[in-house]
């Protein structure tokens, strides 16, 4: 039966599977950085790692509505997995290293998610925080393997494809990180546009209704949590490979809080919010830290307060409102 209603217009989220020209902008901007700011690629690498990490949080927070204060536990699992693979087992090939990092974090995400995702609201917030603290303490206790408080040394990653080494200016690693980010983004975009992704939006919007239409809510949440965990793990692995050094901070509360700020600042539930949020957060942190090494967090806090007060839906929310207003004015 052919319906009179265009499916893409009737179900806007169907239409989202198609590419919009504006989606090219963040990628063009990221691709232009080595040419425009060749001296800032180390900072660029930090931005890329943060985007990837925030993208994974957006999958669970922005789409499925899972709130967590312990997302760094999964980033840290990936960082330690990739780092220990090289430092202890001598496995220095970077791409398989990232896959191992993703798999390790996915395993931790699956097991912890199975228990955690029976809870929601404040209980979930506290339990995710507690899980991250437990894992961080575990990493501290296993000092012979993780380096504990002193950090994990002895990571020596091979050049990518045997050719592109981790140079001082991070030229090769910037490109490497960008390709990894693109691959992860394509997966995330596909997942959120799928029927599965839509059922996550349903869970976020009204979990009672999802139960009543027969959705296996817990299973769906564990599934997306595991996918997001793998992505966070890859971000952590990338971090470990870039810096050739891992400390306990990769599992820290500060990082869990930072990635939450990034997603809220950029705009949750949009994927591209992670790009804007991460770029602003990392660059702001870098600039403010130069201005005032002790006081930079004040500036970050100020930006967050302004976002929550004036732009509940993040910077992308503001952008959407502006384009909607412009479109109304010019029919």
């Amino acid at each position: 039966m052919a319906s009179a209603i265009d499916p893409a217009a009737a179900v806007p989220r169907l239409g989202r599977a198609r590419w919009h020209w504006a989606e090219a902008l963040p990628w063009l901007a990221l691709a232009a950085v080595p040419f425009v700011f060749p001296g800032y690629l180390a900072l660029g690498c930090q931005v890329i790692v943060m985007i990837l990490f925030a993208l994974s949080l957006d999958l669970i927070l922005g789409y499925a509505g899972i709130i967590t204060l312990g997302h760094a536990a999964l980033f840290g699992t990936g960082a330690y997995a990739a780092g220990m693979l090289s430092a202890h087992l001598g496995w220095n090939e970077p791409i398989t290293g990232l896959l191992v990092a993703g798999a390790a974090a996915a395993a931790v995400g699956f097991v912890s998610g199975w228990f955690l995702l029976r809870y929601h609201g404040l209980a979930l917030l506290m339990l995710t925080l507690a899980t991250a603290i437990l894992l961080q303490e575990l990493a501290n206790t296993l000092a012979p393997y993780t380096g504990g408080y002193d950090g994990l040394l002895g990571i020596a990653i091979d050049p990518i494809f045997g050719r592109f080494a981790n140079d001082l200016f991070r030229q090769n690693y910037y490109v490497y990180g960008l390709i990894v980010l693109l691959a992860a983004f394509l997966i995330a975009r596909r997942v959120v546009a799928s029927p599965f992704g839509q059922s996550l939006v349903g869970i976020r919007e009204n979990v009672k209704r999802m139960h009543a239409i027969g959705a296996p809510v817990h299973g769906r949440l564990v599934a997306i949590y595991t996918i997001a965990a793998a992505m966070a793990g890859v971000a952590g692995g990338l971090f470990a490979q870039i810096h050739a050094f891992v400390t306990l901070q990769v599992m820290g509360f500060q990082l869990s809080g930072a990635v939450l700020i990034v997603v809220i600042l950029g705009g949750a539930g949009r994927l591209y919010g992670a790009f804007i949020g991460a770029a602003i957060y990392v660059i702001l942190e870098d600039q403010l830290a130069k201005l005032s090494p002790e006081f930079w967090e004040f500036g970050v806090g100020l930006v967050l307060v302004a976002t929550v007060l004036f732009a509940r839906r993040g910077l992308l929310g503001i952008a959407e409102d502006l384009t909607a207003r412009l479109r109304r004015r010019t029919p």
Binding site: V11, R13, A17, S194, P195, F196, Q198, A215
Partner: peptide
């Protein structure tokens, strides 16, 4: 269909 993860709703 809601568990399908790798194909678009379209």
């Amino acid at each position: 269909i809601a568990r399908v993860l790798w194909r678009g709703l379209a």
